[in-house]
Design a protein around this nucleic acid. Structure first.
Lengths: 340, 340
DNA sequence: GATAAAAAGATTTACGTACCTCATAACTGT
DNA sequence: ACAGTTATGAGGTACGTAAATCTTTTTATC
């Protein structure tokens, strides 16, 4: 016999098609024991819902919007182009995907943008932003309108999001530390940590993880006070320059955030042997790897992040399950040799 | 206006629905200039084919089979369970995915299995096997029957496959070498390379890449003659044991293939400081990382490999495009700290 | 046992594409 | 101008589910 359909469920369970539909789509108006009859029949005949038919019948088109901070770091440019690319592909699935920028570090601007998206009736929102009380409330309102919400890149730990899509940044910091510590060997030295903002959840977690493992496994190195450079290349260049002048025994640098162009400028001119671990493969960091200025770049596949966020929002809309293994974003370790 | 359909194309191009269908599905019987009228109309109104409706209307169910060598290495067990898991998920897309084992290193057994699958009329085959002339011919015959063929894990360079799905093993070997060389520092030492089989394309490529980079960047280390242990743990244990007794200054080991249980046995009992780089996260290698016996494990996400192979075979069947960025399998670097 | 409410049945339409058949129109080369 | 060929038109059915409406049965409450 060929693939069983809803009609077969109805026949097998001795109920009508309408009841099967009510059960399948979790609509009200079915007694518990009838639900059981139906689900038993489903298991019995091995029914699997035909996704193609379902999404054809379900007329609704979905609109998903990525809300990210304004700015022109190469990371953000890359994210934007990835979202656009994924958007083109998703059209075939009656799904539009777009991106809007909001001024960074301006909770009110972010919130009013979210309100607007709520008004417009989008199906889901993917947010990259630091958590604030205002944002938490705005997300709560979105969820009340049955709009899916996912946090991307940087987690929103105490908001009512559907899920966080991004790497485990604590583990990323530990990985950075392990690799940097291993390559530096036994001889004592100083290590410089350059961060973006102490407000960004992802940066905080990375530093925490890095500090943990350095203290545990590489205590012979001195971790210098963290430089906070606001993801700005000029700041990085100036501040790292000063730090290197002030400290003669710096052997490693961990660059937690953006602004790597500044780091390359400082380290590139001297024929330095300082080992650098940074985040995110961009035009800058890619070249730095090729030039042996950076040793390792920790990466999260943005294409994966965006596709995953879309899949999760879509699943949330249609009450489907997600495949956890597929949605886990991996901490990738990029060296010169596996740079694709 | 809402989303354009085939009817809109027909109206806009001034042709019938049947002609639009012939163009869309590349069926014969349309003049070149009519094709142009239609494709112009498609671009004009921004038509995008509705995948859900298409695959519903296209009645055909697909069957994809993974053909892998028989054996009970944990790598193969993992692959098998991943295929099974993906198979369950794919049922919702009218797609069955299964796995068959064939005796390893037996070209004739492999070929007759492929013949049988061809008879059965499967839609696509994913093959993990070393390339032989017989296999090449068998693949050619499959392609003549319009059956999709992909190579997984180990490439089949000169066969008429649709695509290779797996990591770039040359780059993987180079990555292994870079990480091992970096952690060993400047002091001279000996390095042991343990391979599976010299016949497997993937192992050969890895060793080649490893040798390249050691010669280029870490010439102060002596690479000992490669141990060929046929992916067998007992062989590895015995042969590595002998090698370590014979050579007093071994500082690093590169394990190219399977049989890592043997390596762990040898290195685990002595409180050794030998740095080990291996391939594939399994129960064994995972524990070895946690116990600080292995320094790095190079990994390819098998879930990704299998899903990717299925997507590619499906695309080949339905004359769709693949998204190259999504199908690229990355060389993942796993250390204790980013072990998920 | 009457009444209202809840649960279930019956039936229908719609979604957008693939694919089929048969008829007719438009081109070929002679 | 002719037959022979190739292009195109017209119209239909099918896919499996969602969702809606309206009717009938069951259940709960008094």
């Amino acid at each position: 016999m060929s693939r069983p359909t809803v009609h077969d469920i109805a026949k097998n369970a001795g109920v009508s098609l309408a009841t099967v539909d009510r059960v399948l789509n979790k609509r009200p108006g079915v007694r518990a024991k009838t639900i059981k009859r139906v689900t038993d029949a489903i298991n019995d005949i091995g029914y699997v819902r035909d996704m193609a038919a379902a999404s054809l019948a379900r007329q609704k088109d979905s609109e998903f919007v990525f809300v990210v901070p304004d700015g022109s770091t190469s990371f953000l440019r890359k994210l934007s182009s990835v979202v656009q690319e994924v958007g083109v592909r998703m059209l075939a699935d009656r799904t539009s995907v777009s991106l809007v920028s909001v001024p960074p570090n301006d909770p009110n601007a972010l919130v009013s943008q979210l309100e607007e998206l709520g008004q417009r009736g989008v199906s889901g929102v993917a947010i990259m932003a630091p958590e604030t009380p205002q944002l938490r409330d705005a997300i709560k309102r979105l969820k009340q309108q049955e709009i899916s919400v996912v946090a991307i890149i940087s987690d929103l730990p105490s908001s009512e999001k559907d899920q966080f899509v991004g790497i485990n940044n604590l583990a990323a910091g530990r990985t950075a530390g392990l690799l940097l510590g291993s390559v530096l060997g036994q001889e004592a030295g100083q290590i410089l940590v350059v961060s973006g903002s102490m407000l960004a959840q992802d940066h905080v977690q990375r530093r925490l993880g890095f500090d943990q493992i350095m203290a545990e496994q590489f205590p012979h190195h001195e971790i210098l006070p963290t430089i906070e450079a606001w993801d700005n290349a000029d700041n990085v260049e100036r501040m790292v320059g000063h730090a290197l002048a002030a400290h003669q025994n710096v052997k490693g640098v961990y660059s937690v955030g953006a602004g790597n162009a500044g780091l390359v400028k400082v380290l590139g001119k001297s024929d330095s042997t300082i080992k650098v671990v940074a985040h995110d493969v961009t035009a800058i960091s890619r070249q730095a790897l090729l030039d042996d200025i950076f040793y390792v770049v920790i990466e999260q596949d943005l294409g994966h992040v965006v596709r995953s966020a879309v899949r999760i929002m879509k699943a949330s809309q249609n009450m489907l399950e997600v495949i956890p293994a597929q949605e886990k974003i991996r901490i990738e370790v990029i060296v010169k040799e596996n740079l694709s």
